[in-house]
């Protein structure tokens, strides 16, 4: 009995081990990083902020915020992009204080959704620098804030 079982096991082991078998998905290292050109604007795909490039032109930070306020183009909407930044934020002005960038918006800062704030902060940081961003309108302030590292 035991001998037969051992022989059977051996056979299974030998036969099953043959050839190249299909595998599950194997997760490897981090995906490659490429370079992108042009101004970045963060729109939303579903609930996720996603970068959008608008052509190979360089723009002023204030112009970029205007484009953000304009929302997705029809083509982008077709791809599933939307926005939570109200168009009223434009025109906006950027200034610099000691601890980062200060963005003065034309809309009610406190009324902005979290995702909308993330869109604005990330877009500003993409054209300026890594310095924290503070959103102001009169006495209203939000920040200083930074764009989340992993989007």
């Amino acid at each position: 009995m035991r001998r037969a079982a051992a022989a059977g096991l051996l056979l299974v082991f030998l036969l099953a081990g043959c050839g190249v078998r299909p595998s599950d998905v194997i997760i490897g290292g981090p995906a490659p990083v490429g370079t992108v050109g042009g101004a970045r604007i963060y729109l939303l795909v579903g609930d996720e902020p996603s970068v959008v490039l608008r052509g190979p032109r360089t723009a002023l930070p204030a112009d970029v915020l205007t484009e953000l306020a304009d929302g997705p183009t029809p083509a982008e909407r077709q791809q599933g992009f939307n926005t939570e930044v109200p168009p009223e934020i434009a025109p906006a002005k950027l200034g610099f204080s000691g601890d980062g960038t200060v963005v003065s918006l034309s809309a009610d800062v406190d009324a902005l959704s979290v995702l909308g704030v993330v869109q604005i902060v990330c877009t500003v940081q993409a054209v300026t620098s890594a310095a924290p961003v503070t959103l102001v309108r009169g006495e209203q302030r939000r920040g200083p804030l930074t764009c989340p590292k992993d989007l």
């Binding site: 299909p22 595998s23 998905v25 995906a31 990083v33 940081q125 993409a126 890594a130 590292k149």
Partner: peptide
């Protein structure tokens, strides 16, 4: 966000399928 791969059988011939996303570098 990571490189992934999987061995599959394509009509008896083993094939390695590799997939990855292109990441972009951020100024920060």
């Amino acid at each position: 966000g990571r490189v992934v791969w999987q061995r599959v059988s394509d009509g008896g011939t083993p094939v390695l399928a590799i997939g990855t996303q292109l990441l972009a570098e951020r100024p920060d």
